[in-house]
Design a protein around this nucleic acid. Structure first.
Lengths: 265, 265
DNA sequence: CGAAATTTTGATCACGTTCAACTTCAGTGG
DNA sequence: CCACTGAAGTTGAACGTGATCAAAATTTCG
């Protein structure tokens, strides 16, 4: 519970409440998975943020080929990072979930190499990349957190590569569902055995490199085999053990940033 | 040869020479693509390094499931990061080239999520992850460099996802060759229009999610269509424009770390 | 030089794409 | 309230691509 009981403890209960409470924003929850943040860190971080930004479903947040230099911490909603090829085919590189950062990696390039589209209505906390860099110089732990973030992202991508490269379609779909569930659970947006899947089958197929009909058949088969149950976009894992075995799913999560005897310049 | 000319030595012209010279180690070349390093930075970095490590071809450097907490900066040689599935199929997530870091991302997990095998004999510069973290606290620019590194890696993975997800086999192979070439060229290990490809077709097929025979046919076709020429493992792009068009290849490289008015703690 | 690894070629066939039609459902205006 | 629209999900049939298996040719290496 009280991961931050150690902060400084100046204030009575408020701090620890907000610090570890259910109502914390997903991004900070994610950060706390990587390292400890004291109250001063939090204040410094929050000082960077612009007012909350609300994005409508279906809006492109980032456009392939245009400059974009912001970090948008996703508080609510889903997005998809994608690219369309000449032949009209679209590949979704990854789904951006609460606790993820839109602008990672696009803001690290002169021109965004991908587009990002909002799948649902979204709420974002925004700061400029420059501001975050500034913070990183003053408090290196934020730079390290950024590294951990990026590494985590790379590892997720690696899993995705393995998934579409060498798994059969049925395994691929199973793995995908488990992965999304794990990522949502990691930021407190899913329960033990199920989650809300606000993603159309067309998008899933574009993420998994399958055709829509075939993806549909695979989902049907998972249902027929009593692995999952779907009721208006809520996915429930009926037989978690079985589907994990099928997908050969192993949850991926980076270790914490090692804490030395801290900053001594 | 004189990669370390810059180490202690207080000589005037040597420094700037070594700083941008052809003979610099690939990793530092890579770093310099992200940000400026002064002599003091270099010394601090080199102080972390263990003696050079030589690895024999075919050796596993990292083993899936075991702890590994080092950063190995590749000076010479190629490696492959991979995972094998239950059915015996292997997916190569990415090839590790000079200037890359073995241990990224595996060292950021409690247990390595992938294996890494040396494809050729290798020369590595090694330090512990902890030591690098320490340096990052003292000099935040290294933490930022690490972020840029990880982001670059994630972006390369994203390209790989797009490649195997939505490109046809022939485009896939073409893209792959262009990508490897670009990455080698970025650290000075390839010439304008060709490069040494020390990777068996079996490995390529495991990276691209194709069968060996089919990969072979695609390579033949690229040769027949006068896109490439291969002479004992040296690939030459005969018609660079054509193959780029075929692959829809766009080189990917992160912008530089923005320099504010620098560290003011 | 012999053995093993790698590349190349061929024949067959299953799998997943493609294309098409149909269903279901939510939203909208007459 | 119902007809209309468009998006999303579902099902079927036919086709073609790329996997699979097998074997030969070639190269690499001990």
């Amino acid at each position: 519970m009280s991961d931050l009981a150690l902060s400084t403890v100046a204030l009575p209960p408020r701090t620890s409440e907000a610090a570890s409470g259910q109502d914390e924003v997903p991004f900070l929850r994610r950060l706390r998975g990587y390292l400890d943040l004291n109250r001063s860190d939090l204040q410094a971080f929050e000082a960077l943020l612009d007012p909350e930004l609300r994005i409508k479903k279906r809006r492109d947040v980032v456009c392939d080929g245009y400059e974009f230099k912001k970090l948008c911490f996703v508080k609510e909603g889903y997005a998809a990072r994608y690219k369309v090829l000449r032949n009209g085919k679209r590949q979704i590189v990854t789904f951006v979930l609460p606790g993820d950062i839109i602008g990672m990696p696009v803001s690290f390039f002169d021109y965004a190499p991908y587009s990002v589209v909002a799948i649902t209505d979204m709420v974002l906390q925004v700061c400029t990349l420059e501001a975050f860099i500034g913070l990183s110089h003053r408090r290196p732990k934020f730079a390290l957190a950024l590294s951990w973030f990026a590494v985590h992202e790379a590892a997720n991508h690696a899993e995705h590569i393995i998934n579409i490269g060498r798994r059969t379609p049925i395994e691929r779909v199973a793995f995908f569902l488990l992965e999304i569930h794990a990522r949502l659970a990691n930021v407190g947006c899913a329960n033990e055995t199920g989650f809300k899947l606000d993603i159309t089958q067309e998008m899933m197929s574009d993420a998994l490199g399958l055709s829509v009909p075939h993806l549909n058949r695979m989902l049907s088969r998972l249902r027929a085999d009593d692995m999952i149950a779907i009721c208006d976009r809520h996915v429930e894992f009926v037989n978690l053990r079985a589907i994990r075995a099928l997908a050969q799913f192993q949850p991926i999560k980076p270790s914490r940033v090692p804490t030395l005897n801290s900053a001594n310049p």
